[in-house]
């Protein structure tokens, strides 16, 4: 039972924390860059989106370099995070940020600037405009980004394996548990984990689609 439940809990924990980071970082970057059409903006955006197209092992290897004793992240954090669940969070955050970024960016771009002007003429302050008008209007895009980021973080395998390894009870996630179960011939564990993963993914995507369809009725 523990061989199935523990990886599920670890995966959910890593995915949840990574999605929170993605939400903050991805949305902030999208807000800052959505109006930038210059070269610098394009370069930044390309860097943010790179994990989408690069093999996860390369992302993992790069992170390994950054987290190693001579890496920048090691110097910043002051602790060796390699082979801890935090390394899994960092890897999952990096690969899920592009999805959060893309979705929130299209949300910001679809926002009609007239609404902000009307808000001002109605006597609303900056925060009231953001929370009463802008955020609710881009909520579908934010939620799409959130669900896709969570799903991506949950299914993350290559980069996580490179930096967090697959230590049972510590860093072994559903994805790596299935890999090692299949490798060791434990079909039952692999099948159960696969079923759990399919159910979680299906429920996530199904609820998102259902909510979006209802929400888009006003458009």
């Amino acid at each position: 039972m523990a061989t199935v439940l523990t990886p599920v809990l670890i995966s959910l924990k890593i995915a949840f924390v990574a999605t929170c980071f993605s939400l903050v970082i991805g949305t902030s970057l999208a807000y800052l860059l959505h109006k930038k059409n210059d070269k610098l903006g394009t370069i930044f955006e390309t860097i943010i989106l790179l994990p989408l197209v690069m093999p996860p092992t390369i992302t993992g290897y790069l992170l390994l370099l950054l987290l190693s004793n001579k890496g920048i992240l090691y110097m910043l954090v002051g602790n060796n995070l390699i082979f801890t669940w935090w390394a899994g969070v960092i890897a999952s955050t990096i690969v899920s940020i592009p999805l959060m970024y893309q979705n929130s960016k299209s949300g910001f771009q679809s926002l009609n600037p007239v609404y902000k002007d009307i808000g001002k003429t109605l006597g609303l302050g900056r925060f009231k405009i953001i929370f009463s008008i802008e955020l609710p209007l881009i909520l579908p895009s934010l939620l799409s980004g959130l669900v896709l980021s969570f799903a991506r973080a949950l299914g993350e395998f290559g980069a996580t394996l490179m930096v967090a390894g697959s230590i049972p009870g510590k860093t072994r996630t559903i994805a790596s548990a299935i890999y090692f179960a299949v490798e060791s011939g434990d079909r039952q564990t692999a099948n159960t984990l696969m079923l759990i993963m399919v159910i979680i993914s299906f429920l996530l995507m199904f609820s998102l689609n259902l909510w979006l369809k209802r929400k888009r009725n006003y458009n």
Binding site: D117, I118, K120, T121, L122, G123, G125
Partner: peptide, 8 residues
Amino acid sequence: TKLRQIAY
């Protein structure tokens, strides 16, 4: 703008 009492 928010204090001008102008409706647009």
